[in-house]
Design a protein around this nucleic acid. Structure first.
Length: 480
RNA sequence: GCUCGUGUAGUGUAGUGGUCCAUCAUGAAGCCCUCUCGAGGCUUCGACCCGGGUUCAAAUCCCGGCACGAGCACCA
C-alpha cells in the first residue's frame, strides 16, 4: 500500500508539535530551503502544530546577515506555505537570554573560558588531553567572561567551551565551543555585544526556549544533535526528537551558495536575486512556478537521509500538472516566415474563434481576423510542404504561398501553429539555459496579453508575460 | 586518519520477516484520443550494492566487505 504524504513524526502529540525553520538571513530563500519550509510547515499542518521561523544571525564576520534578507525570507516563506510563520524570532534580538545561560554554564561549572589557540586546543583534543583552562574554578571563569564581554579580550583570544569528556570517541564532541568573541558590527544590533554564541549553543538554547518538540535538519548537523544533547544533559533538559534529510542537488543548478550568488550579483553577472537563472524562490516565482506544485514536489521526495540528485524536470512536471488547467493558450511563432494564403477558390471564414483552453477549462474565446490572408509560420515548419494550420485548414506550401487544400482535416499531416499577420505583435522570449540567457524573437498573437499571466505558447511551452508595451511583448520562459 | 550516516529501476520514492516474480511518480520507447511538441488514456523498458549468517521464510534481522556522503571551523 502506497502511503501518501509524509511519514508520521515520532512521539508526536496532535496539537502539541512545535517545529522550526532556521535560515541564516544572508540572502533570500533558495530551492534548497524550500525543502525545510515545506517539510516543517506540512508537519505543522498535519499535527495542528506550529512553526518557528528563526533567524540564526549570530555571525557578523564569516556569514554577515543582510539587512533586507529578513523581510525577503518572511516573504518567501509566506509565498511557499500560503501563511505567515506562527512565531518569528531573531537570534540577535535574544542575546540576553543566551548570555544568561552562558553565565549559568560557567557558574555551575559545566562550561569554562578557554584561552588556548584553536590549533593548540585541537592538538590536545585529538589526543584526548584536557586543556589547562579546564580546571579553572567558576569564579575565575566568570571574571574571564566579564573581560570577554567588556572587550578586554581580543577576537580569537578566548572562547567559552562546554565541558563534555575528553575521551569521547567522537573528537568533534570533546569540549566543544559555545561562544566566541566578535568585535565586528552586527547589521541589526550594532556593537552592543562583544561575545556571540555559535550555532550549536544558540540553537540549543532557543529550541528549549521555544519548546521545540521536533527538529528536522540536514544530516550534516548530526554532530550538532550530539553536542546539544550533551548540553541539554547539563541543564537537565530533554532534547527534542530529531530527524534528518540528506543533501539534495538539482542537476540544472549544480552547486551554489547564497554567498556565492551574492557575490555574482554584486559583480553584475546576475541581474538580481530574481534573475531567472538563479535557484532562488523569487526567481522561480517570477518565472511562474506554482507554490503548491513546489510543495507537492518536496513532499513527494519525503524525508530521507539519502543524498539525492534530482532533475528540474521533475519539478516542472509537478508544475505542469498544477497549472495546465488554468493557463490560457496563445500562439508564439519563432523565426516567423510570412506566407500568403491562396484561397484556391474555396469558401473560407475570415473570422476564427478559438478556445482559450482546449478542454474549455477556461471559459472564453479568442477572435482571429484573417481578412488579409497574410500569416506567419515558424521557419522549421516549412520543411514540410503539406501542413495543417491548427484549427483552420490543410495547406500546401509553394514558395511563400500557402494554397488552401481543405478546411476539413484530410490526413495525418503535421499540425502547426500559425498566426494571422493582422493580430501579430513582436514578442521576445527570454530563456534561462545552462546559466546563460537565450533570447528568442518571434511574433505573438496580440489578444488579451495581460502582464504577469502565465500562458501556454502552443507547441512551445509555458511562459510568463512580463510586460506588454507599445511595440513588444516580453515573455519569460517557464518550462516545456 | 578518527567519528557518524546512507545504499530499492536512468532519477526519486513505497515497502520494517511471508499477502513482493517488489509500489507510485518521473524518464525513455511506442500506441490511442484530442486539430499543440500541452492535457488525458494505454502498453513496454527498468531495481532490492556484494558476500556470509539467522530463519520453514529476508529488500526487510545480524555480521563482514564495498561504494557514496557528511562532521572533525573561534561558519550556519
Amino acid at each position: 500500500m502506497k502511503r501518501t504524504g509524509l511519514k508520521d513524526l515520532p512521539n508526536a502529540v496532535q496539537g502539541n508539535v512545535i517545529l522550526r525553520f532556521a535560515p541564516n538571513p544572508n540572502g533570500p530563500l533558495t530551492l534548497g530551503h524550500a525543502r525545510g519550509v515545506t517539510i516543517n510547515s506540512e508537519y505543522a499542518k498535519n499535527y495542528e502544530g506550529k512553526v518557528v521561523l528563526r533567524f540564526d544571525d549570530t555571525d557578523s564576520k564569516v556569514k554577515p546577515p543582510l539587512k533586507e534578507a529578513y523581510a525577503w525570507i518572511e516573504e518567501d516563506y509566506k509565498w511557499l506555505t500560503g501563511k505567515e510563520p506562527d512565531i518569528i524570532v531573531r537570534a540577535s534580538e535574544r542575546m540576553d537570554i543566551y548570555m544568561k545561560y552562558a553565565k549559568k554554564m560557567l557558574s555551575d561549572d559545566f562550561g569554562y573560558v578557554c584561552k588556548c589557540s584553536a590549533e593548540n586546543f585541537k592538538k590536545l583534543r585529538d589526543s584526548s588531553k584536557e586543556c589547562p583552562c579546564r580546571i579553572k574554578d567558576p569564579k575565575e571563569n566568570l571574571s574571564d567572561w566579564d573581560e570577554m564581554n567588556n572587550g578586554l579580550i581580543g577576537e580569537g583570544m578566548a572562547v567559552v567551551r562546554v565541558k563534555t569528556e575528553m575521551n569521547l570517541p567522537n573528537p568533534a564532541l570533546r569540549d566543544w565551543p559555545a561562544l566566541r568573541i566578535q568585535h565586528t558590527t552586527h547589521p541589526m544590533v550594532g556593537d552592543k555585544y562583544k561575545v556571540w554564541p555559535l550555532l550549536d549553543f544558540q540553537s540549543a538554547i532557543e529550541d528549549y526556549e521555544q519548546g521545540v518538540t521536533h527538529i528536522i535538519r540536514g544530516k550534516d548537523l548530526m554532530d550538532s544533535t550530539r553536542k546539544q544533547t550533551l548540553l541539554y544533559e547539563h541543564f537537565g533538559w530533554k532534547y527534542p526528537e530529531t530527524l534528518y534529510w540528506g543533501r539534495v542537488k538539482i542537476h540544472e543548478f549544480g552547486s551554489f551558495s547564497t554567498s556565492g550568488m551574492r557575490q555574482e550579483i554584486e559583480n553584475e553577472k546576475y541581474s538580481g536575486w530574481d534573475d531567472p537563472r538563479l535557484p532562488t524562490l523569487r526567481a522561480l516565482r517570477r518565472r511562474g512556478f506554482d507554490s503548491d506544485a513546489m510543495r507537492d514536489f518536496w513532499i513527494d521526495l519525503g524525508l530521507t537521509q539519502k543524498d539525492i540528485s534530482v532533475s528540474l524536470q521533475t519539478i516542472e512536471s509537478f508544475n505542469s500538472s498544477k497549472i495546465d488547467s488554468s493557463c490560457e493558450r496563445r500562439v508564439f511563432v519563432r523565426n516567423p516566415q510570412r506566407i500568403r494564403l491562396d484561397d484556391n477558390n474555396t469558401q473560407i471564414e475570415r473570422k476564427l474563434t478559438l478556445n482559450k483552453h482546449p478542454l474549455n477549462e477556461i471559459k472564453g474565446h479568442r477572435e482571429w481576423d484573417l481578412e488579409d490572408l497574410e500569416i506567419y509560420i515558424e521557419a522549421r515548419d516549412l520543411e514540410h510542404s503539406e501542413i495543417r494550420l491548427k484549427d483552420f485548414a490543410d495547406i500546401e506550401i509553394q514558395d511563400s504561398n500557402g494554397i488552401i487544400q481543405s478546411i476539413e482535416r484530410t490526413d495525418k499531416r503535421q499540425i502547426v501553429h500559425w498566426l494571422p499577420k493582422s493580430i501579430a505583435k513582436k514578442a521576445i522570449l527570454t530563456i534561462p539555459k545552462d546559466n546563460e540567457i537565450v533570447i528568442q524573437e518571434g511574433m505573438m498573437e496580440d489578444i488579451q496579453i495581460i502582464k504577469n499571466n502565465v500562458v501556454q505558447l502552443e507547441r512551445v511551452g509555458y511562459a510568463k508575460i512580463e510586460s506588454n508595451d507599445d511595440d513588444v511583448i516580453k515573455l519569460l520562459w517557464l518550462h516545456g
